[in-house]
Amino acid sequence: MQNEKYLKKTAELYDKISSIHHDKYQLWVEQALFTWQWWLSVLLTVLPWVLWIIFRRKESAFRVLLSGFFVTIISSWLDFIGISLGTWHYNYDVLPLLPSFSPWDFSTLPVLAMFMIQIKPKVNPFLKGALYGVISAFIGEPFFSWLDLYTPEQWKPYYSFPVFVAIYLGAHWLSERKGFEKVAE
């Protein structure tokens, strides 16, 4: 009978979450959609990828894209956790269907990492990781907060710094792998 209590309580919580998502969607449609903050978020989602397409090194594009997708997966996963724990939230979502902030997790962070990987590839990756951490934590987060796109609740940029360094180092490590072979039958 413990299982039935659990399932009932889970269904009740799901109904509350669903209702809150509906309310958030209504608020987004009425007060966020097509505001300057929303348009800026759309621009910050699209522009980095346009720049990447124009300035990427074509001979290593797929290798570096793998690193960018790694950054996207890890940063959005950590973002979901941070939002769920109430450490921060976003105010002007491009789409209110994702808990993460798409300009940050799906565009700015991965494209910045990809450019840093391909620019001066012989520079020490720890130095580049530290630079990535500084740009992301101490420039990016305060900038998004200043624009009211991001609200840290229980989070400081210096908490993010080692996380961003680790994300960059993981992306760099992936970009250096030599074991890419064709899929065999």
Rank of each mutant, 00 (worst) to 15 (best):
W49G: 01
I54R: 15
F62I: 11
L44K: 09
V71G: 07
F70G: 07
W52M: 05
V64F: 07
L66K: 03
L66C: 09
F62V: 11
V46H: 10
S76T: 03
L65T: 05
G68M: 06
K58G: 15
F62S: 14
D79Y: 12
R56A: 14
G68V: 00
T72E: 13
L44C: 15
I73F: 15
F80D: 09
F80G: 03
R63F: 09
V64M: 04
F69R: 01
E59Q: 13
G68L: 00
R56D: 08
L47E: 02
L51W: 11
L51G: 03
S76A: 10
W52Y: 15
R63K: 13
L65N: 08
R57S: 12
L51F: 09
V46Q: 14
T72F: 11
R57K: 15
D79E: 08
F55S: 14
W52K: 01
V71S: 00
L44T: 03
F62R: 07
D79L: 09
I74R: 09
F62M: 14
F69W: 09
F70C: 11
P48Y: 00
W77I: 07
L51D: 04
I53Y: 15
I53K: 15
S67Y: 03
R56P: 09
S60R: 04
T72I: 10
R63W: 08
L66R: 04
T45M: 10
L65A: 10
V64C: 06
L44V: 04
K58H: 08
L47T: 01
G68N: 02
F55Y: 15
S67G: 02
F70D: 04
G68T: 02
W77H: 10
W77S: 14
K58P: 06
F62T: 11
S76L: 08
S60K: 04
I73H: 11
V64I: 12
W49H: 04
L47A: 03
A61Y: 07
L51N: 07
I74Y: 12
S67A: 14
L66W: 10
D79N: 00
I73K: 09
R63E: 12
W77K: 10
S60P: 02
P48G: 03
E59G: 12
I54M: 15
S67D: 05
D79G: 01
S75N: 11
A61T: 06
S75L: 05
R63V: 14
L65G: 08
F69N: 09
L51T: 01
S60E: 13
V71K: 01
L44Y: 06
A61M: 08
L65W: 10
S75A: 14
T45P: 03
V46M: 14
R56L: 13
R63A: 11
W77C: 08
S76R: 08
A61W: 09
R56T: 09
L78I: 13
S76V: 02
S60A: 13
L51I: 06
T72P: 05
V46S: 01
R56C: 15
